[in-house]
Amino acid sequence: MNRRALATTVLADVVAPLAVFYGLRAAGVDAGPALLTSAVVPAVRALVTLVRHRRIAWSAALVLVLCVASAATALVTGDERVMLAREALVTAALGVALLVTVPSGRPALFALGRLVLADAGHDARSWDDRWRGSARFRRIWRVLTLWWALGFLADAALRVLTAYTLPVDVVPALHAVQWFPVLAVLLLAGHVWLRRPAHRELVFS
């Protein structure tokens, strides 16, 4: 994702919903309707993405389905906390998707690392040789993929916990910034794991 696309995603999926929610709350709108209205921006963006590309973009489809499903559930049950917990399903889905690849022939983090290597102009075939010939190399990437899977699942659990225990007005802002410490921990620990003396030569040589 380039910088422009990243900026658009952050503005549409994070900044705009927060601005709508807190703007409506400041105007005296109840939390439930404010949450429903704030979900319109990412839902519309996801729908536009699907229509524009004229093919299934799974991330956009997931966002749209979650927005509609959580909004419908909140309307039926009258519980705005269903809307607050919506994002937990996204990170849970990511965690499960990564977890499924751990025992496979291409764990997700290995495939991603290989793609980055190839995009940087390096010969990624050496990694294929190491994958076939080194049990330790395979273990490195399986453990790293498992670490990220568990991290996303923990993030999802934390989002559900905070959605149902903290004041409603606190949760949207908290969930918006939660990504940063979670990703920082995952990235830092993953970097330390790859840079261990026993792993460094296999991964970076």
Rank of each mutant, 00 (worst) to 15 (best):
R4S: 12
A5E: 12
A7K: 00
A7M: 03
A7P: 15
T8C: 08
T8V: 14
T8E: 12
T9M: 01
A12E: 13
D13E: 10
V20F: 06
V20Y: 08
Y22W: 07
G23Q: 01
L24T: 00
L24I: 08
R25V: 15
A27V: 07
G28Q: 09
G28T: 08
D30T: 13
L35I: 06
L36K: 10
A39G: 10
V40C: 02
A43N: 03
V44Y: 02
V44M: 09
R45Y: 10
V48F: 13
V48G: 08
V51N: 10
R52T: 07
R54D: 13
A57L: 13
A60M: 00
A60W: 00
L62T: 01
V63P: 06
C67I: 06
A72W: 05
A74D: 05
T77S: 10
E80H: 14
E80S: 13
R86G: 00
L89Q: 02
V90Y: 04
A93Q: 05
G95K: 02
A97I: 09
L98G: 10
L99F: 09
V102T: 06
S104P: 00
G105W: 10
G105K: 04
R106W: 08
P107I: 03
A111I: 02
R114C: 08
V116P: 04
V116D: 15
A118M: 01
D119L: 12
G121A: 09
D123V: 10
W127G: 13
D128R: 02
G133Q: 11
S134I: 10
R139P: 13
R142M: 08
V143I: 11
L144T: 07
T145P: 01
T145S: 12
A149D: 07
L150T: 04
F152Y: 04
L158Q: 05
R159Q: 04
P167Y: 02
V168I: 15
V170M: 09
P172R: 10
H175F: 11
H175V: 14
A176I: 02
A176D: 00
A176K: 03
W179Y: 13
G190F: 04
H191E: 15
W193K: 09
L194A: 05
P197D: 14
H199L: 13
H199C: 05
R200C: 12
E201P: 07
L202R: 11
